[in-house]
């Protein structure tokens, strides 16, 4: 084999390295994240020493920022998403002769999937980035060190109030999202076609099941735990100021990916007929 040819043709070893190196990185990252989660769980042992008064203010502040402050934005997005789904549903389903399933389809698309997912996306972009940036800045200005020296476990002091606040906020926001999507979507759809309000909401309520409520609770709990966990993890990563944007961006992309994968898994577990 000529020298030039050897340079351009990957050998077996280099192909393995090409494929293996990223896999190894993912594996190491997963192991490191798992160790971090275990350390958080182990730190729960010291919860009994903590006075609730020290974290109650943080829970309130985070609930206000993540839940209440995000509400107008969530409602606007929900109305627009709901409008699009309703318009598409009401104009296209009759062509296939399945307009009778319109309400079921609404529940399936909006309540089961879009509500939790879009709400989580909004929370990640607003509050996930805020946590990662705040932690990275606090680490840089040695605020985290000050907490540790004072005997305050930063994992508990920072993560626990946010998990509580995020779970509550996401659950509430999903309920608001679904309501606004159905209500606002119906109003928007009136501009293009008419459907009696009683029939619309009557059919919707019939299409809802306890499983949908369970899915909403499970997803909001999972997202409420994971968004602060992943954001804190990446917020603690930067070793210099210049690395802060890199890890904040990584926090957002990894959280988005994890949330979307878990959303699929939960939906599959809850709604696949062979599990019923």
């Amino acid at each position: 084999m000529m020298d030039d040819e050897r340079k351009t043709t990957p050998s077996g070893g280099s192909v393995a390295a090409y494929v293996g190196a990223p896999l190894l990185r993912v594996w190491r990252g997963t192991v490191d994240f798992a160790a971090y989660v275990v350390s958080i769980v182990l730190s729960f042992r010291s919860l009994r020493f903590i006075r609730l008064r020290s974290i109650s203010a943080t829970i309130l502040t985070q609930t206000r920022f993540t839940g209440i402050d995000a509400l107008p934005f969530v409602i606007v997005i929900a109305v627009l998403v709901g409008g699009v789904v309703i318009i598409q549903g009401m104009t296209n389903l009759p062509r296939f002769g399945i307009e009778g399933y319109f309400s079921n389809l609404m529940v399936i698309i909006i309540a089961r999937e879009l509500g939790p997912l879009v709400t989580a996306l909004i929370v990640i972009t607003r509050s996930g980035t805020a946590i990662a940036t705040e932690i990275a800045t606090q680490k840089w200005s040695r605020e985290i060190l000050a907490l540790e020296i004072a005997g305050i476990d930063p994992r508990l002091y920072i993560v626990i109030p946010r998990i509580v606040a995020f779970s509550l906020s996401i659950f509430s926001l999903i309920i608001f999202f679904d309501t606004a999507a159905f209500l606002g979507g119906y109003l928007i759809s009136l501009a293009t076609l008419y459907m009696p309000v009683g029939a619309f909401f009557g059919n919707l309520s019939q299409a809802f099941s306890m499983k949908d409520l369970l899915a909403t609770i499970v997803k909001s709990m999972m997202f409420g735990v994971l968004i602060p966990l992943i954001s804190y993890y990446y917020g603690m990563m930067p070793r210099s100021k210049s690395e802060i944007p890199i890890y904040v961006s990584r926090a957002v992309s990894r959280t988005l990916f994890t949330i979307i994968v878990l959303n699929v898994l939960v939906s599959a577990l809850l709604y696949f007929s062979w599990l019923e």
Binding site: F49, I50, R51, R53, S54, A57, T61, E134, T137, Q138, S141, R142, E143, L145, A146, L147, I149, A150, G151, I152, Y157
Partner: peptide, 26 residues
């Protein structure tokens, strides 16, 4: 411990920064 970067928690007031340790577990 008092160090040159001071490390006051930026989201807390002066009073909250001082009392945090006592609020947390005393």
């Amino acid at each position: 411990y008092l160090h040159g970067d001071y490390g006051l928690i930026s989201s807390l007031t002066v009073e909250q920064n001082i009392s945090l340790r006592l609020e947390y577990y005393s």
